[in-house]
C-alpha cells in the first residue's frame, strides 16, 4: 500500500577507507513511517543518516531513494539531486555545523531560497516557521552565539522551512532541558501526523516510544543487531544492556543496597 521511501541494501561504509562505520546494513523505510535508529556512541547512526541524505555514498551496496539510486554528485543529474534535496531534510547532530549564515533569519531562509521560492513567500515562511518553533525573538541574532537548545530549534526551523517529505533527525534531544525535549517530540509527532516520514537517530530510550513505531538497534560491530516494533525492542532488556543502552543502577534504599536496571518505560521504584 504505502510506497517505499528508502531502500538500503547491504551497505558498507568506512571513513578514509580505514575506519569502518557501517557494515552490511539493510533497511527499508516506507512513506509515513516513524523510525528510530538507536545504538551506543560510534555505532554508525550519524553515518547512516548522512548516507540517506545523499551526502556520502556507500563503498559497497546501495541506497535507493524514491525509487532511484543515490549516486555521487558527478553522476547525479542536477535536477534529480535538487528534487531529492527538496524532499529530504536532515537536522545535523551538531547544530554549529548546520547554521552557517550570519543571522538566524537568513539561516531559515537559506533552504527555500536555494529552491527558488520567491522572496515574499520566503519571508512569510520564515516568520511562520519561527512561530512554530518559538524562536521569533531570535531572528536577528547570530546563530553561533545561541545556546545549544536555541541552536537546535533554529536548526530544525531551517529544515522545516524547506518543508521536506522526509525528516532525518540526528540526536534531536541530546543535551536539552525537559521542556525543550517535550517541544521537539511534539514537533516530530505532529509532523508525522501530517504524513511526514521521520527517521531519528538517538540513544535516548525515553523518547523512543513516542517518536518511533519501528526501532533498529545498531551494535558495536556497526551493523543492525535487531529491528522491530518499539515495544518489543524496549522490553528486551538483555539486548539493550549488551548494547550499552541501559546500565545497572545501584543505590541505597531503606537501609539496603539495591541494584536494578535503569529502564525508561517503568516508573522508578
Amino acid at each position: 500500500m504505502s510506497d517505499t521511501v528508502f531502500e538500503v541494501k547491504d551497505v558498507h561504509y568506512s571513513y578514509l577507507g580505514k575506519f569502518p562505520a557501517l557494515c552490511g546494513i539493510d533497511i527499508t523505510i516506507r512513506s509515513g513511517e516513524k523510525i528510530a535508529v538507536i545504538g551506543a556512541n560510534g555505532t554508525g547512526k550519524s553515518t547512516l543518516l548522512q548516507l540517506l541524505d545523499g551526502l556520502i555514498f556507500p563503498d559497497h551496496g546501495h541506497v535507493t531513494a524514491f525509487g532511484e539510486r543515490l549516486l555521487e554528485n558527478s553522476q547525479f543529474d542536477a535536477k534529480t539531486a535538487h528534487l531529492f534535496r527538496k524532499r529530504v531534510g536532515l537536522v545535523f547532530q551538531n547544530a554549529d555545523i548546520q547554521l552557517f549564515c550570519p543571522s538566524v533569519r537568513e539561516d531559515i531562509a537559506f533552504g527555500p531560497l536555494q529552491f527558488g521560492v520567491a522572496a515574499q513567500e520566503v519571508k512569510r515562511r520564515t516568520l511562520e516557521v519561527a512561530e512554530v518553533l518559538d524562536i521569533q525573538h531570535l531572528l536577528d541574532r547570530v546563530p553561533h552565539q545561541l545556546s545549544i537548545g536555541e541552536k537546535r530549534r533554529v536548526a530544525i526551523a531551517s529544515v522545516l522551512a524547506i518543508d521536506p517529505d522526509v525528516y532525518l533527525f540526528d540526536e534531536p534531544t541530546a543535551g536539552l532541558d525537559p521542556l525543550t525535549v517535550r517541544h521537539i517530540i511534539d514537533f516530530i509527532v505532529n509532523a508525522n501526523r501530517r504524513g511526514k516520514t521521520i527517521i531519528t537517530a538517538t540513544h535516548d530510550l525515553h523518547i523512543i516510544g513516542e517518536i518511533a513505531d519501528t526501532v533498529y538497534v545498531f551494535g558495536r560491530n556497526k551493523s543492525i543487531v535487531r529491528g522491530g516494533s518499539s515495544d518489543s525492542v524496549l522490553n528486551d532488556r538483555s539486548l539493550l544492556e549488551s548494547n550499552n543502552l541501559i546500565h545497572m543502577h545501584r543505590h541505597h534504599h531503606e537501609g539496603r543496597e539495591h541494584v536494578h536496571q535503569h529502564l525508561p518505560l517503568e516508573p522508578h521504584d
Binding site: Q50, D53, L55, F92, N94, F110, G111, S158
Partner: peptide, 10 residues
Amino acid sequence: EVYMAMLSRG
C-alpha cells in the same frame, strides 16, 4: 561538514 550542511539544504 558545513559544506555538507549547505548541500543538504539545496
